[in-house]
Design a protein around this nucleic acid. Structure first.
Lengths: 342, 342
DNA sequence: AACGGTACCGAAAACGTTTCCAAGAACGTG
DNA sequence: CACGTTCTTGGAAACGTTTTCGGTACCGTT
């Protein structure tokens, strides 16, 4: 089925191995004719050079890696599709690496850079709470996808593409307030200081304060479970707990659609009507938001555009035509059946 | 941060490179003492050998690849977690490869075997409609995960771990019949002859025939869309179409939970009550089945067990302690709120 | 005719490992 | 003491590429 090496091709064509290599790599120092002849043999034999040997020899490979921490977020799948498509269409190699829940993405990245001589990296998802010093150890261009810059905006040591989590959370909380809600619970994945959760909390607080509503700690709920903190199960548990405490609220902002689903199930089970008794909204714009019953009011992240932008940004960095920057996209407030006037 | 090679370590220890290699690979031909000394330096320098060079040289690497076609199925994520954990705990290297929608998994596999000198492969999901000849070109042990053997059971040219799709579909359709449903629509992802859809259709037909119900073509619906045919959107469209045709039915068997969700949304939108007007069930046992409102009657696949079995089977094959076999697990009928007597 | 420049090409070194081979040391045995 | 065995080791070849370096052949100029 294979077993061909560049040497076999060279022999068959009656040329040296270096000439074959040149043909394969679009080197200028080669005669059009010989190149054509070689490529014909290459096609015929279905030869493809060993990337292993290639990576070993090359000072820099042609490989772009996507590192993702936990792929449970459906948003990531679509992005990955686009990444793979775009990268391969640009004749780069694409490699996908999961980083385990306990692993540190930077060390994984560093390992891969050394091993595969990466040309670029895309970090997808996760919280990515790393110091600038750590980021600076990454010696190749990289882009953080769907990861908000957080506090340290406008830094030139990395690039990121995401929605502005603070702003979008503000937007949706503001919407809840604008239709009359004053007591709004927020369901967060965790209480990490640098996490996306904290950004969404920030937006929530800003919206409340704009509407003159005081933030109440008892309405702020964090998942405590290990594992996937964005799960439906977490939303369910959080809401059950909230209901059991007999706290009054008319609105809920769940930091993700999956959390919202769990929370809604708990509410519906408890006999609450949505949105008559309680309004709920989520975040992300997953399919389930459109197909839950009732449909869920949410912030739709423009992932297709974002994915495309990640790619162009990464290639700009590689080709050094552009510097690092933090790019934010505008989310879209999609009003569903799960929210209504109080 | 890196840059160390085996040569540096050798120099620092005052030994030859081959000795370091022996230490690293648990070779017997090495003095306990020197090995210990070398390993200390290796630890101290955080040295790890280049897998690229390793793969290039070795006749067979230590790498096991998981190839998955489309990772939109949440079931796969949990399996992947287990795969990665188990494989790495066995000191094997783990590599994950997506195969694009249009790509052929066998060629991808063949490429990787050549490149990475794979020790084993796990094919996850997809339909995997390949001839025996094609399968025989795969020169390393491999296991099909969540892929039913289909027609050709009891073959010794490959291993698979899955539920028995025919049997489980029979089980859930039988349940619908047993509570009085006689007109049951089935919603399938595609009409491929070898696909998992066709197996689930087969189980459906068997159940109907056991109950003396004749199969009606108009109640059998296939997704026609490109892309993810297991999507909620497809379920939604299929049901809308069905409703528009004014065909009478009291039960629906959707070939996956996601299809079921879409279908239920369409029903609910149309003012149908579930399960009073129509009973719906799904397949897979996704989280959403437990958190939809109403909860969805479904077949729960025991994925943790299955994932574990995939690993043990693969290692049995690698160590040649066992031959190929098709292993099926029993699914569990989980009755939710979406089904009731007619 | 001599020369510089250009286009093309092959030999060989390198990338970082593993593994084969030979060889030295240590040891017991006859 | 000579000799085979067993451990342990280092040197060197090999894996399949890319890339540097130098060389040949040909061209147009002077």
């Amino acid at each position: 089925m294979s077993g061909y090496t560049i040497k076999d091709i060279a022999k068959e064509c009656g040329v040296g191995v270096s000439t074959v290599s040149r043909a394969l790599n679009n080197h200028p120092d080669i005669n059009k004719e010989t190149k054509k002849r070689i490529m014909e043999v290459v096609e015929a034999r279905k030869f493809s050079p060993s990337t292993t040997a290639r990576d070993l020899k090359r000072i820099r490979s042609n490989t772009i890696a996507v590192l993702v921490k936990g792929l449970d977020n459906p948003l990531f799948h679509k992005m990955m599709d686009i990444f793979q498509l775009e990268i391969e269409s640009k004749k780069y190699d694409f490699v996908f690496q999961r980083v385990g829940a306990k692993d540190d993405e930077i060390s994984v990245a560093l390992d891969m850079i050394k091993e595969r001589k990466l040309k670029g990296i895309i970090f997808l998802g996760g919280n990515f709470t790393h110091s600038e010093e750590q980021l600076e150890t990454i010696s190749v261009p990289f882009v953080l996808a769907t990861i908000s810059p957080g506090k340290n905006v406008n830094t030139d040591i990395y690039s990121s593409v995401s929605v502005d989590d603070v702003k979008e959370s503000y937007k949706i909380t503001d919407y809840l307030c604008s239709i009359g809600h004053k007591r709004i619970a927020i369901l967060l994945p965790d209480n990490g200081d640098e996490s996306v959760g904290s950004l969404r909390l920030e937006g929530y607080k800003q919206a409340l304060s704009k509407h003159g509503i005081t933030v109440e700690e008892q309405l702020i709920r964090y998942s405590v479970d290990e594992g996937d903190s964005f799960s439906m199960e977490n939303g369910y548990k959080l809401m059950r707990q909230l209901l059991s405490e007999d706290i009054y609220f008319t609105g809920v902002f769940a930091a993700s659609d999956k959390i919202a689903v769990g929370a809604m199930k708990a509410l519906l089970e408890a006999g609450k009507k949505i949105p008559e008794d309680v309004s709920v909204c989520g975040f992300d714009g997953l399919d389930i938001a459109r197909y839950y019953h009732p449909t869920i009011t949410t912030i739709v992240q423009p992932i297709d555009d974002m994915a495309g932008r990640v790619i162009t940004q990464l290639f700009s960095l590689i080709e050094e035509t552009e510097a690092n920057s933090q790019i934010t996209f505008e989310g879209k407030l999609l009003v569903g059946e799960s929210t209504g006037p109080v």
